Amino acid sequence: MKRALNFNAGPAALPEEVLAKAQSEWLNIRNSGMSVMELSHRSSIFEDIHHSAIHSLKEILQIPSNYEVLFLQGGASLQFSMVPMNLNAPDKYADYVITGSWSEKALKEAQKIGKTRIAGSGKNDNYTHIPKLDELSVSDDASYLHITSNNTIYGTQWHEYPDTKHVPLAADMSSDILSKEIEVDKFGLIYAGAQKNLGPSGVTAVIIRKDLIHESSHLPSMLSYNIHAKNNSLYNTPPTFAIYLLSLVLEWVKDKGGLKEIEAMNTKKAKLIYKAIDESDGFYKGHARSGSRSNMNITFTLPGEAAEKQFLQQAAEAGFTGLNGHRSIGGCRASIYNAVPYSHCEQLFDFMNAFKDTYKKCGTR
Rank of each mutant, 00 (worst) to 15 (best):
K2I: 07
L5G: 08
N8F: 10
P11H: 02
L14N: 07
L19I: 12
A20M: 13
A22D: 04
A22T: 07
S24H: 05
E25V: 01
L27D: 08
N28G: 07
G33E: 05
M37L: 13
S40F: 02
S40D: 09
H41R: 05
F46L: 03
I49W: 04
H51Q: 11
S52F: 00
A53M: 15
Q62S: 13
P64M: 14
G74M: 11
G74V: 08
S81Y: 13
V83R: 00
M85I: 12
N86M: 08
L87W: 02
Y93E: 08
D95R: 00
V97E: 01
I98P: 00
T99G: 04
S101F: 00
S101M: 05
S103M: 04
K105W: 13
A106E: 08
A110R: 07
R117Q: 14
G122I: 03
G122K: 01
K123S: 13
N126E: 14
Y127D: 00
I130T: 05
L133R: 11
D134V: 00
D134H: 09
E135C: 10
S137L: 05
S139C: 11
D140V: 02
Y144V: 01
H146Q: 12
T148E: 11
N151W: 00
T156K: 03
W158E: 02
H166K: 12
V167H: 01
M173N: 08
M173L: 14
S174G: 15
I177L: 14
K180E: 11
F187A: 00
F187W: 03
I190C: 04
Y191Q: 04
Q195M: 12
N197G: 01
P200R: 10
T204S: 10
I208P: 13
R209C: 02
D211G: 03
D211T: 06
D211A: 02
E215K: 15
E215L: 15
S216N: 15
P220F: 02
N232A: 10
L234R: 12
T240Q: 06
F241Q: 05
Y244E: 04
L246H: 05
L248A: 10
L248C: 15
E251V: 07
D255S: 14
D255Q: 15
E261F: 05
E263G: 08
A264F: 03
T267K: 11
A270E: 02
K271P: 15
I273Q: 00
Y274P: 15
K275P: 04
K275L: 06
A276M: 12
D278R: 11
S280T: 07
G282Q: 09
G282N: 06
F283Q: 00
K285F: 06
S290N: 14
G291V: 07
I298D: 04
L302R: 04
P303H: 03
E305I: 14
A307Y: 02
A307G: 04
K309G: 09
K309C: 05
L312H: 06
A315H: 06
E317G: 09
E317N: 11
A318E: 08
L323A: 06
L323H: 09
H326G: 11
H326V: 07
P341F: 01
S343H: 09
H344S: 08
L348V: 13
L348N: 12
N353G: 15
T358G: 04
Y359H: 13
